[in-house]
Design a protein around this nucleic acid. Structure first.
Ligand SMILES: [Mn+2]
Ligand SMILES: [Mn+2]
Ligand SMILES: [Zn+2]
Ligand SMILES: [Zn+2]
Lengths: 139, 139
DNA sequence: TATTACATTGTAATCATTACAGATTAGGTA
DNA sequence: TACCTAATCTGTAATGATTACAATGTAATA
């Protein structure tokens, strides 16, 4: 179950290790689908019946505070969670609702010199119809 | 009160003209601060006591459906509304909560060729601390 | 002016997220 | 190993933005 991997990640970042944190972290690592808190909750609940949704929110909150997960607010109705990794952009399919990773250049921290604002995060996102939906095989 | 201007805009786009739509449109045009639905509601309510918040949502909904306003979902907690105009990006100040317009190049519809997705909207947004807050004069 | 489809209003419902208080536990210490 | 305690987890209730709905009002057309 590769518990050691996630235990190490939590320890290295100065977080206490709990079964709930390990499970959420593992889920995010193994399911790069930008899930909602409820997605995570419903899935993990099956094997962890005592899991509380509040705990899922708490874990996601601390993981994002420590920079391990990024919170996406593209859809407008609910937050999506993205497990760390390299900088990339996102494409929201308005047909199937999926969020697809996009890797493009042209977005950088140095893009806005003159204004004098201090940029801490750069997000690029796109909306449209994904390839699968265009082909009629989308969700 | 420049009613004719907004009457014309609504008519040209095939929408019925109502006092509520004129007021919301005028507010958005004259207050380019990316207000929330509640911002709009509270302000307009002063001079239009019978205004309903549902109406504000309805008007914003139809205006966005007709492409006159853009819905921003940067903050994650509430939608912000941006009156048409030219393509630009946004900067969310995590200190004062304001959303500032940013005009940069490097974002275009042609950025993602290989994936095969059909791009209908391109958004770029940034988070950080705005110039005013850096200077200690922010909200 | 009469008609009618559409818009507005107020209230209630929904849904994601947060607040809170009591029970549990991780990690340290003897 | 057996405690200790602050941190975490859990369940429930509260919050707040948004939406659903039904009754009332009105813009556009003839
Ligand atoms: Mn991603
Ligand atoms: Mn803007
Ligand atoms: Zn799709
Ligand atoms: Zn600021």
């Amino acid at each position: 179950m590769d518990t050691e991997k996630y235990t190490g990640i939590l320890r290295e970042n100065g977080m206490k290790v709990t079964p709930q944190r390990l499970e959420v972290l593992r889920f995010l690592d193994e399911n790069r689908i930008h899930p909602t808190a409820d997605d995570i909750y419903r899935t993990l609940k099956k094997d962890n019946p005592s899991l509380s949704k509040t705990t899922v929110y708490n874990v996601l909150d601390i993981l994002s505070k420590y920079g391990l997960v990024e919170v996406l607010t593209i859809s407008g109705t609910e937050s999506r969670y993205d497990y760390g990794s390299t900088r990339h952009q996102h494409f929201l399919c308005t047909s199937c609702g999926r969020i697809v990773d996009i890797h493009i250049k042209g977005l950088c921290m140095d893009c806005m010199p003159e204004k004098g604002h201090k940029v801490e995060e750069v997000h690029g996102y796109f909306k449209g119809t994904c390839r699968d939906c265009l082909k009629g095989i989308g969700g």
